[in-house]
Nucleic acid binder design. Structure first.
Lengths: 96, 96
DNA sequence: TATAATTGTTGTAGAGGTACAATAAAATGT
DNA sequence: ACATTTTATTGTACCTCTACAACAATTATA
């Protein structure tokens, strides 16, 4: 299967929202969108617009590629590198 | 005027494309979109989807917020800080 | 168990993003 | 000046994103 064409986008919305102990409603308020929209995003019904993605990234104070990616994320917990890494994953530039 | 709601998105598409000496057609090919779409984006007729924005960022090997922003960019040339800076601009987190 | 709060589902509607075609205008090269 | 390439414009069509409403299911809490 090819790799650069369209396809779904992975994200860490649920984790991030959980981390801050927010309800969808309150997150939606903070982002200025409908609470159902947050639901749609979280369960991958569709992707946010770039506009919304930027607002989300501002809200969480994280770079976009920390929240959205065309390749699946590893759990945030692993991202810190406490354990020895076996294989490379999710490296921005790497031609996989 | 408010600040966190919708609004146009600024970008550096023309500069980046110019830097690499690409035509819209060739950039479009590289991105897998119609060449007119690149035109629409460059002249701000509409914003790319998040999907496309991510592809663009991969293509140019730059983080998204280096290419797209909800606040106007300063010229790339200034971004390097050779000259003394007078005022802060375009700082990600700063509550302006 | 009852009640409220949160999340999921379905449907409708409107705005935005992308492709494609045709044609015009502008820039470039000879 | 001419031909070719690049960019702009207009119009049509389709699919995605977002809002909103109503209702069901789930989870939390008294």
């Amino acid at each position: 299967m090819s790799n650069s064409g369209p396809g779904r986008i992975y994200h860490r919305l649920p984790v991030l929202r959980a981390e801050r102990g927010l309800t969808r409603q309150s997150l939606a308020d903070a982002l200025g969108v409908n609470y159902q929209t947050v639901g749609y995003l979280e369960r991958g019904d569709y992707n946010p617009s770039l506009e919304l993605a930027l607002r989300i990234s501002e809200f969480f104070q994280l770079p976009i590629e920390m929240i959205f990616s065309r390749k699946p994320f590893r759990p945030l917990s692993e991202e810190l590198g406490y354990l020895a890494k076996s294989g490379k994953q999710n490296r921005q530039g790497g031609a996989e």
